[in-house]
Amino acid sequence: MSKPDDLVSSLYDAMLLDLDGTVYHGARSIPGVAETVRKLRERGNRVRFVTNNASKAPGEVAGNLRGMAIDAEAAEVSTSAQAGARLLAERLSAGTPVLVVGAPALVAEVEAAGLRAVREAGDGVAAVVQGHWTETGWRHLAEASVAIRAGALWVACNVDATLPTERGQLPGNGSMVMALRTATGAEPEVAGKPAAPLLRTAAASAGAARALVVGDRLDTDIAGAVAAGLDSLAVLTGVATPAGLLAAGPAERPRYLAADLTALIEPASALAVGPREGWRVTVDGGRLVAASTGSTDALDLLRALCGLAWESGHTEVGAADDRAALALAELGLASGAAAIG
């Protein structure tokens, strides 16, 4: 039986939660999230809802979460717009004009940081900040191009190429950033995940001594945690897949792995990537061979497989017995695989 001090909620004082794919899918909360967030608060954990989306104000995000029965206050929401504005405020003196390519929420964050938001290039514009906005058009990009070519500091709130919606993946801020890269030959500084500023801002706002990042994307959430020097938990309710986890490079590897966010009230030792009781994984002929020594838990097998895959560089898998074959099929790694050896 696990000791109380082994619980995830005991090892970390703040939980930095990604939203889409981790807390909700579109307009629907992922089952168990609301209750888990409530239990975390009861245990004294601080919670931050962290989003790369710069188009919505923290109050609007919090309101959406409350509409899903998830307790949230505006002060608990950390956006890439906040991180971008903070990055600018660290570089520029108060009152400096900043050209904003983005939504009114981004304008508000720039002004809250003590800078002057403008929409046109001109004398005195020292920086351009760019965030997702459905109204962004050629005129906005043209003004930004003029300012960047004149030497303005360029900050992108995030570089996500796509944005998940009910209609599927649509162009995200990264697609608009690419247009300016092409037009100017310049590279922006990035505030959102996978860069470190957003997660560091979120952790600081929670006064965290030790924060845990929870997310469903290896290339943004987990990579952002690695860049910020924070531990992370990858969940399988969104983009991450077992195959993707096996192939993850050092910059995209989580410390923990779970089916969903409800694992935050479980023992951390049960979630850690690495050797697992009940499974034996070895390298044979350039592939990972799994054998059950009593377990049928597919997620535990995945934790063991990832540990050896990351150590050895091998990602092809095989099963040494029927239990392992069934677990691999459940993970989508070797569907219907027959036992070997």
Rank of each mutant, 00 (worst) to 15 (best):
S2P: 15
K3T: 14
D5K: 02
D6W: 05
S9C: 15
S10H: 14
Y12A: 08
L19D: 05
R28W: 08
S29C: 14
G32Q: 12
G32I: 13
V33Y: 07
A34W: 10
E35H: 13
E42W: 05
V47E: 04
V50G: 08
N52D: 07
N52V: 09
E60Q: 13
G63M: 02
I70W: 01
A74W: 03
E76P: 09
A81I: 07
L99A: 04
V101H: 02
A103K: 03
A108V: 10
L115V: 05
G122I: 12
D123L: 12
V128A: 03
V129S: 01
H132R: 01
T134E: 15
T136Q: 05
H140P: 02
A142F: 12
E143T: 11
V146L: 15
A161K: 12
T162C: 11
Q169R: 13
N173G: 03
A186S: 15
K193Q: 06
A195V: 03
P197C: 05
L198N: 00
R200A: 01
A208K: 09
D216A: 10
A234L: 15
V235W: 08
L236H: 08
A240T: 15
T241L: 08
A243G: 14
A243C: 03
G249T: 13
P254Y: 08
R255D: 13
Y256R: 11
L264S: 06
I265A: 12
E266A: 15
A270G: 11
V273Q: 01
G274L: 10
P275D: 14
E277C: 04
T282N: 07
L288R: 07
V289L: 15
T293W: 04
T293A: 12
L299H: 07
L305D: 07
C306Q: 05
A309I: 09
S312N: 04
E316K: 11
V317I: 06
D322I: 12
A329V: 00
E330D: 13
